[in-house]
Amino acid sequence: MTGGLPKRLTLILLVLLAALALFPVWGPLAFAAKYAFLLQKLTGIMILAILAMSLDLLVGIAGLVSLGHAAFFGLGGYMLAILSPQYEAANLWVVLPATMAAVAAVSAVVGFLAIRTAGIYFIMVTLAFGQMGYYFFNDSKLAGGSDGAYIYVKPVVEAFGTTLVNLDSKQSFFFVVLGALVAVYLLLRVVLASPFGRVLAAIGVNEGRVRGLGFDPMAYKLVAFTIAGALAGLAGFLAASQYGFVSPAMLGWHQSGHVLVMVILGGMGTLFGPILGAFILELAHFGLEAVTEHWLLPMGVLVIAIVLALPKGVAGLLLQWCGKKGEGGQ
């Protein structure tokens, strides 16, 4: 889906966004002692939502099902750990572009090789690259090996020697991540509405047909893979900033699979769907974990129920409800 959203749906999403943005206002009144924890939880979910949106560009739009996307997420985190001075705050204006550029470069190389395959082979190749990344950081002495690495001082947003935003403040960090979430969503909307996005969406449906129109699908897929990798790197950077810690698990296939479930549950190819998928999956995890230690069982039932009842995900249901028939991703 590369066109605009129905007005009613836009309104619903804006209300949800406003509720999220105002959480620091109503959260302390509603949750009192749990507010600080929930603020952190919501921040973490928004980071995963950015990761899910980046994967949606590949899975939902270009039709490339990647099981190694977390490698770029983890690499983004490790880049922050490696680039940060040990006892000083790194300047976000320096480390963030450097991180995204490095992750984009790695994803371009991986993508160059991976897009030569299709279907199940693409899944296997991306899985293999992801696991290579995992074992690279797990088995080497770089950044703490299997123990992971700490980022003792979080990056700061500085300009002309003045600290504008201190990411150590949980509230400031919440707004930085919220801003990143909105910016990534809008960026991807612009990308999808561009001629590039239209061709990419067409490639997701029928690559041969697109070739017959005079477009080289390989070039388009490589650019998409690189953009998705760079945005996953941004999410990894934010995750490492939030927790002050990185470990090889960030790159593993469990993480890739987890994000893929968010995309599928939310609704592939819709961008806002994977955001909803991230919130639904993580809040369900949080809620069920509080009720039973066997939370994985009801979680599995929930996932199966949503997939069976809503083949186009939650976004598909919303699009249908809001009057955009025949949409809701692929």
Binding site: R198, N206, R209
Partner: peptide, 14 residues
Amino acid sequence: GMFHNLSVREHLLM
């Protein structure tokens, strides 16, 4: 050779 995820306008502009 239509694409189900593109509108008429998008088919032409792409």
